[in-house]
Write a protein that binds this DNA or RNA. Sequence first.
DNA 1: TCTGGGGTCCTAGGACCC
DNA 2: TCTGGGGTCCTAGGACCC
Length: 400
Amino acid sequence: MDAFFASVELLRYPQLKGLPVVIGGARRSVDEALLAAQGQRALRFIPVAEFPLLKDYVGRGVITTATYAARQFGIGSAMGMMKAARLCPQAIVLPVDFDEIRRFSRLFKSIIAEIAPLVEDRGVDEVYIDFTDVPGGQREGGRVLARLIQKSIFDKTGLTCSMGVAPNKLLAKMASEFNKPNGVSIVVESDLQAKIWPLHVRKINGIGPKAGERLAALGIETIGELAAQAPHRLVRHFGQSTGVWMIEAAWGRDASAVVTHSEPVSISRETTFERDLHAVRDKAELGAIFTRLCEQVAADLQRKGYAAKTIGIKLRYEDFKIATRDLTAPGYTADAKTIRRLAGQCLKRVPLDKRLRLLGVRAGTLLKVGELADGEQHRAVGTSAPTQAGAELTVTRQLF
DNA sequence: TCTGGGGTCCTAGGACCC
DNA sequence: TCTGGGGTCCTAGGACCC
C-alpha cells in the first residue's frame, strides 16, 4: 500500500492532501491537539513547530509513514520525530490510529482474496499474491489482473497500492518498488540483467544494514556484482546457507511458496519510557509498567485464543544495548499473574546497573486453545495464583 | 536531535537422552 | 583409558522486516 498510514489519515482529512504529513510518534490525538491550540473549535492542523513543548508532543517517537510531500524534505520512515520536526517545521504530525489501520488492512486484504484467494500476509500493508491459477492471471504478463486488483481496492477504499508481478516472491518484491505510487511493474527472467543487476544489494529482501556493509567491505555494491562472485567466496564470509542464498537471490532465484496460513510464534508488548528509568530509584514506576505489560500480553493471548509456555523479558538500556531473558515453564498459561511472576523471575537474572529505556514482555511456545469451549477456555486461561508456583502450572497443564 | 512496536528466523552452546 | 554420534529442548543474542 502506498504511504499506507498517511493515506488512511488523508481519507479522513482530505484538506491535508499535498501537505507534508507525517504519522507516528505524536503523544496526543488530533482532537487534543486542537484543544491545545488556544481552545479553537474549528478543525485546524498545527504545524509541528508551533507546539511550544515539541518534545512533549512527539516524545521519543519515530515516523512510521511520511506523505510524498514530506519526503521532499528528506523525511523517511523510522526517522526520529525530533529530527523530522527540524527538517520540516511546517509538517503536520498525526498519531497512528491503530484501529483504523487494522480496519483498512483487513479491508484491502479481503478485497484481494475475493479476486485471488492465495494471499500471504506480510504485515499491515503488504501481501504476496499467487496469480498462477487465477483466471486471467497470465494476461499481459499479469498486468491485467494487477490493474483489476488496484482498481477494486481503490473503488472500495480510496487507497492506492503498487504491485510487482514476477516469477517469484523475491523478484515481485523488488518489482513492486519500481513504479510507486499506484504503479504496476512486470519483471520476467530475461529482465534480470537490465532491471535487477544494476540495483544495490540492499534492495534484496533479507540483506539489511549489516550484510550490506559487509558486502561493501568486499567491494560488492550491486546485485550484478554479487551475482558475479564465486560462491565459495561468499560462503567463506557469510557461512554456507547465507552465502548460497545470496548467490541465488542475486540470480533472481527463489523457490519459496506463497504461505496462506501461519500460526503466531510469539506475542509481545513493549514500551519505551518518556525518560530513562532507574531500577532502584524508579522502582515503583517500573513495577507498575511491568505489571501492565504482563496484563496486556495476557489479554492479547486470551483474546487471540493462545496460551504460552515460555515467558520472556526484554530490556533496552540507556546506551541502547539490549538484554533478553526467558523461562520455559512446565505448563501453559495465559494468566496475567502467572506471566507476571515468571517475567519477574527473568528480571532477577538480568543486570540492572544501567538506566532502562525500554521494557518488554514476551510470550512464546504458543498453544492454540480455540478448540476448547468458550466457558472452559475462560476458566483455563483465568487460572491463577495458588500458593505454590509448581502447583499452579500443573493445573493449567492439566486443563490443556 | 537520538533512535517505536510487533514480529520472524537463525546461530550457537549446553543440558540431557538414547 | 579414551572418549561415539545422533537428536531435542532451552537460552541469549542478533539480523532483518513491516
